[in-house]
Design a protein around this nucleic acid. Structure first.
Lengths: 242, 242
DNA sequence: GGCGGAAATCATGCATACACGATAGGGCTA
DNA sequence: TAGCCCTATCGTGTATGCATGATTTCCGCC
């Protein structure tokens, strides 16, 4: 906790800094940080200092600051007055709210997606799930998580609603932080659920797909140690007699 | 269209600029602009220049720029490279997506709210709806819209989920822009629906509340001229012989 | 008289400078 | 030697300056 980014162990993919490419610099930094969080290279609590980031990406603090502010608005960065920015450490309550919101939004998204998905979309979805299962079977957890993520994002895209898709992206990112913080056992993802989900979509059963999605997210949430008794023991538990 | 803000007809509430109050300056500007949009004092397309805004609020362009960027991220301001920022003018498709997202999110929110609302909450909700109806009966449309808005925000708050509440705020703001742009007849709000909604909540019937909310939003959307044929006639319609 | 183009003006994009507050390290004291 | 305070350093908050590109205006031309 409290690690600072350095040139060597920064956790950020070298952002081939082209000194001339202007405009999208902020987006580049945001994406790099988001990606690093998704891939668990950036842990919650990691300090994100403006100057080092700026030097790393070849821009001034101004741009870095804009990027950090944006990420703060998304809830993935904690930006407190006069204090160094850190990767957010959502509380257990935050995480529960994130999951509750995901259940609402993603159930709606998958219902819309069910109505809109075409033959090709279904095939792509099926392939995605197959690859995901294969990755887990091979023990390639990182790849599995990445594909699982893509599956959820794909649902957002298929919903045809950019607003829902955007919210979904935000929430999956926050979920990644939640997993990093509260993961209980080793394998956290109930990837088997995806199969059933795709079949419900293929069967054009939006209701069932929505229900399955909600259940899937419940399952995911239940694999996190959000309960106080799951986390660090309280003082009462430590010192309480009996 | 294309009006520029001036000291006189700015549409912004005089932001009693205390030169010393630092930190929350950006939030103050954001709130002022949001409020002005909600109250229809700022129309879509209005130019928002950094320097005049900065002078008005007593801060430098830096702060104004931060505020505009945040509002851009929320979709209420259109911020294009090297161009003056303008209040967003969502397309008909954007509006449809906004409403679709609202149906999903607000149905979920009201369902949660139904489970959580206490006696006092219900009383407050009832009073709100009563005041709203009274305002409309008195022909005070502005007040009616304000109370209606507060009703929806209250639902978000009662959901107990800050994430959903935040999304809801964003979407109601966008809805305000949508109404300003696409309003068909004079009275756009189906305020009668709120009564039924409150009763469903009071009856602890979350399903029905969610259904009513979705219907309410459908009704609202249907009162907008989102259909191409409702909007500006095409050249073919104007000049086409027939 | 209307249209087109060029220059001046204006507004934004970005970097930097300066000031304030936080943080950490060292020295002092008990 | 351990704990605490004071100071030096560091990092962020805001304003401003300069460069680039958009916009408008004015003049010449047809």
């Amino acid at each position: 906790m409290g690690a600072t980014l350095t040139a060597g162990r920064s956790g950020l993919k070298r952002g081939r800094r082209r000194p001339k490419e202007a405009g999208g610099a902020e987006a580049r930094i945001c994406d790099a940080i988001r990606q690093a969080i998704l891939e668990r290279r950036l842990e919650p609590g990691t300090k994100l200092q403006e100057a080092p980031l700026g030097e790393f990406f070849g821009v001034s603090r101004t741009i870095v600051r804009q990027a950090l502010r944006r990420l703060d608005a998304e809830g993935v960065v904690d930006l407190r007055e006069k204090r160094v920015a850190v990767v957010a450490r959502p509380s257990a309550a935050d995480v529960r709210h994130t999951f509750a919101a995901r259940r609402v939004i993603e159930a709606g998204a998958v219902e819309a997606a069910t109505a809109r998905a075409g033959r090709a979309d279904l095939a792509a979805l099926r392939k995605l799930v197959r690859d995901e299962n294969a990755a887990y079977a091979n023990g390639d957890r990182t790849r599995g998580l990445g594909l699982s993520l893509e599956f959820h994002h794909r649902i957002g895209g298929l919903s045809g609603n950019p607003v829902l898709a955007r919210y979904l992206r935000e929430l999956t990112l926050l979920t990644s932080l939640a997993i990093a913080l509260y993961e209980k056992s080793g394998v956290v993802h109930a990837h088997a659920d995806h199969d059933a989900l795709v079949e419900a979509i293929a069967a054009r059963d939006g209701r069932r797909a929505a229900r399955l999605m909600a259940g899937h997210l419940d399952e995911l949430e239940s694999r996190l140690a959000l309960d106080p008794r799951d986390g660090a023991p309280s003082l009462a538990e430590i010192f309480g007699r009996d």
